[in-house]
């Protein structure tokens, strides 16, 4: 049992936060719970604190909408929260689409799809192009361009307000990630992930790699949804400072050598310097 906890503790905690957040939202809609109302695009915490998706707010700004104080404050709170936390913590701890793409990725490993499709034909920078394009299109069309196609919004609206044909969007993402592109949606295309990757560059909670303990088994790179951020594994003792790291902690769990751990930015380095 302790072994299970060792190997899945962050995964369990992440599923717990993802599912309980969705439950709180569902309760907010159907049973009038006052904890959070709305959805991940905009919500009200305890009926007083506004929380708004800063990327949606940015699109609204580009579309020429009047930005209300509520919207601005809510977007600022969320931005500062994830900025301090660091990385794409939203993606792996809050976003419900993460459950779908993780499932696709798990199946991909189990079915050995990765061995058949070795080549990854797409760049992980597509998301930044999509991010830029969404703002340009919002400006040109005068509507929030990504919000009208976002499978993330479709998914959490489907969970909170009733599914309709929303399941088709979830299935599309699942099949895309399973058969077309490894980490296709979250790791290549999603502009919301790209957005959080940009603001998460300076955050505090970061994975730290200790090269001296590493046995170069590469389990971490196999399980990591953004393996490029682990470039230092087995080479150098460094913190994972790339904003694209989702802080999911899977690398920490699969490491049998205790060579990866969560740390606070910089503090880990100082500690190492003291030891040396």
């Amino acid at each position: 049992m302790t072994n299970f906890w060792e190997h899945y503790r962050f995964l369990v905690l992440r599923r717990f936060t993802q599912i309980s957040l969705m439950l709180l939202y569902i309760g907010g809609n159907y049973w009038g719970w006052n904890f959070v109302q709305g959805n991940l695009s905009a919500s009200m915490l305890f009926g007083v604190v506004p929380l708004n998706d800063p990327y949606a707010a940015l699109q609204m700004f580009a579309a020429g909408a009047v930005i209300t104080t509520n919207l601005f404050v809510g977007a600022l709170i969320v931005t500062i929260f994830y900025m301090l936390l660091g990385g794409r913590t939203f993606c792996s701890w809050v976003c419900p689409v993460n459950i779908i793409t993780d499932a696709a990725n798990y199946l991909r490993r189990k079915l050995h799809v990765n061995q058949v499709e070795k080549k990854q034909p797409a760049s992980r920078n597509i998301r930044y192009w999509v991010l830029g394009l969404s703002l340009v299109l919002s400006y040109i069309l005068g509507v929030t361009a990504f919000e009208f196609i976002s499978p993330i919004s479709i998914t959490h609206r489907a969970i909170i307000f009733g599914v309709g044909l929303g399941w088709t969007a979830m299935l599309v993402i699942f099949l895309f990630d399973l058969f077309i592109l490894k980490n296709g949606w979250c790791g290549h295309i999603c502009p919301l992930g790209g957005f959080y990757g940009v603001i998460g560059k300076v955050g505090a909670v970061r994975v730290d790699h200790d090269e001296e303990k590493c046995t170069v088994c590469m389990k971490c790179k196999i399980v990591c949804p953004e393996p490029q951020v682990l470039f230092m594994v087995g080479k150098e003792s460094l913190q994972v400072l790339d904003g694209e790291c989702t802080n999911c902690g899977r690398c920490i769990e699969v490491c049998d050598d205790d060579a990866l751990n969560f740390s606070i930015r910089k503090l880990a380095k100082e500690k190492r310097d003291e030891n040396n």
Binding site: A42, M44, N52, D53, G142, E147, R157
Partner: peptide, 12 residues
């Protein structure tokens, strides 16, 4: 269309 953030708080 430019201003609605699709949060559903009116629905709730």
């Amino acid at each position: 269309l430019a201003t609605c953030i699709k949060c559903g708080m009116c629905v709730e």
